[in-house]
C-alpha cells in the first residue's frame, strides 16, 4: 500500500511520530474529529497531551470532541531557507489558534483555502490575529490527517 501523500502536493512534509501520549489525538484526526485531552477527575483540558493531570495528579483521561471553531492567536510568515517541501510553498503562514470552546487550548496550524489546499493557497499577509477559522484536515499519510484551518 502506498503512502497517500506520495507524489502529492504534500510530499516531503513532516509528519508526527505518533506516541503513547499523542495517539488518541492523531487517531481522532484520522477520523475527521478534533479531540482534546481532558482530566477525567477534575475536568481541566490540557495540550499537548500527557499522562498525568498537573492540577489534581490523576492519570484518568478523557478525550473531548471540539467544535472546530477557533480564533487566530498569533501568526508568522515563513520565508526560505526552509526544508524543500516547505520552501516550495513559501512564503506561507503558520498560526497558533485558540479554540473557541476552550480558549486555554492552543494549537499550531496553517490558515489555508481548504483541507487539501497547499500552504500558500491564501495570501499569508491577509491572516490576522483575531481571525475566525474552522478546522479542516489535510491527509499527509495513511495514518496522519493534519488539522488545518480555513477562514470561517
Amino acid at each position: 500500500m502506498t503512502d497517500a501523500a506520495e507524489a502529492g502536493p504534500f510530499d516531503g512534509m513532516l509528519k508526527p511520530a505518533i506516541d503513547d501520549d499523542s495517539r488518541p489525538f492523531w487517531e481522532a484526526c484520522d477520523r475527521g474529529e478534533l479531540r482534546i485531552q481532558r482530566c477525567a477527575a477534575c475536568g481541566v483540558r490540557r495540550m499537548p497531551p500527557r499522562p498525568l493531570c498537573p492540577h489534581c495528579r490523576s492519570f484518568e483521561t478523557a478525550w473531548d470532541v471540539m467544535s472546530g471553531r477557533a480564533t487566530v492567536w498569533s501568526v508568522l510568515v515563513a520565508h526560505p531557507p526552509l526544508l524543500p517541501a516547505y520552501g516550495d510553498q513559501a512564503p506561507y503562514n503558520v498560526v497558533v489558534v485558540a479554540l473557541d470552546d476552550d480558549p486555554s487550548i492552543r494549537l499550531v496550524g496553517n490558515v489555508v483555502a481548504a483541507g487539501d489546499a497547499p500552504l500558500d493557497s491564501i495570501d499569508p499577509h491577509t491572516v490576522e490575529i483575531g481571525d475566525a477559522v474552522t478546522v479542516a484536515f489535510r491527509r499527509l499519510a495513511d495514518d496522519v490527517a493534519l488539522p488545518v484551518w480555513v477562514p470561517a
Binding site: G12, M13, L14, K15, P16, A17, I18, D19, S22, M47, P48, S74, V75, L76, A78, L82, L83, Y86, Q89, Y92, V94, V96, L107, V108, G109, N110, L119, L140, V144, L146, V148
Partner: peptide, 24 residues
C-alpha cells in the same frame, strides 16, 4: 520524515526553525 515528542505539535505545519518559534 517523522518528528516526535514536542516537535510533533509544530513542525508538520512548517514551523521548522528556532526563528519561527520566536517569530510567533
Amino acid at each position: 520524515d517523522r518528528v516526535g515528542g514536542n516537535q510533533q505539535w509544530s513542525r508538520p505545519w512548517g514551523l521548522l526553525r528556532p526563528v519561527d518559534e520566536i517569530a510567533m
